[in-house]
Amino acid sequence: MHYKLKIFRFHPEQDARPHYQHFELDADPTERVLDVLEQIRGEQDGTLAFRRSCAHGVCGSDAMRINGRNYLACKVLLRDLNAAEITIEPILGLRVVKDLIVDMEPFFDHYKSVLPYLINDDPLPADGRERLQSPEDRERFDDTTKCILCAACTTSCPSFWANGEYVGPAAIVNAHRFIYDSRDQGAEKRLEILNEQMGVWRCRTAFNCTEACPREIKITQAIAEVKRAIHTGKLE
């Protein structure tokens, strides 16, 4: 099938402002958007810049806006877009470094701000090995362990577009992962951080995050659970 692509281009050392470049190619509808981008870079314009790594929806490198919506380029097939004309742009709310590559540092700063690691100062169990937990306790936060930090959720969030200081859905999801971990002891500290002005209360439940998540994490639900934990002071 014949496809027309309109791709966002910006080279900070050459361009005063971003522009769109048009490409045309033949591709199979079962190919992924990432395949098409690789084809363009390989055959038509080697200067096209975009991130990719595993190309199988695990590393989270290639989140981008495709026909106006956040996707991982490696997880969306051309036929899923139901269009022969495809517009590809960088994710919104982060500074564009070049073409489809954005500066992820602010995103990772927010991630780090919620203490995304196990906090437990108790001595290790007698056998010196792992801290055990029941399957039910593990199940409680299973959904939020799936995050791959691709930023598709955070950059689809209207609150993040309006204010880049907002920690954003991804950071809250990763806080949720530890807040509800029965082995962790840092929940109070994290809830305090998320109760601040740029924390969970900036969520307006627009739901774009949940719709955009390539791992199908129930993000809005996780945010609501954190809000509830702050509000009631209880982890349910």
Binding site: R69, S156, P158, A206
Partner: peptide, 17 residues
């Protein structure tokens, strides 16, 4: 924000927001 409001192709949640 305005680019996102007007250009992002969200679903019901986006339009409801």
């Amino acid at each position: 924000t305005l680019t996102g409001y007007a250009g992002y192709r969200g679903r019901e949640g986006h339009w409801s927001f």
